[in-house]
Amino acid sequence: MTKPDTDMLEALFQDARATPPAMPDGLMDRIMADAVAQQPKAKSGGWRAIWQTIGGAPAFGGLVTATAVGFWIGVAPPSNLPDIATQIITGTEYASFDDTSLPDFSAFGWDIEEG
């Protein structure tokens, strides 16, 4: 194996690297069509989008906590807070469960409405 022969082979390799075989017409388009056909759908839209809009799991956790706390305050309000439900029912500015001027009621006063 003489040096000129190896140099010629190297030159042929160089030509081959510089001029790769041309892609046949339409092959790229067919491959791209395959890619699109096989591609998983983008993870967006529908319930996922709504979920992301409200902030995902952290925001949902906060929402649940706030709802639970609000419900509990409604059921058993702290004594130093005005009882909004009673105010609405009696039309008074302030009232409390130990107000003797009011008839006993329970269940948010639904029993009063029903007589």
Binding site: P21, M23, L27, M28, M32, Q39, A42, K43, S44
Partner: peptide, 27 residues
């Protein structure tokens, strides 16, 4: 990105990889 549904990634991969694959297979 392709697996996440990014069509631009599909196009880039096709354009970058196809000629190399074809060249090797042809040789």
């Amino acid at each position: 990105r392709y697996a996440d549904g990014d069509e631009a990634a599909a196009r880039l991969l096709t354009m970058q990889l196809s000629p190399r694959v074809f060249g090797h297979a042809f040789r």
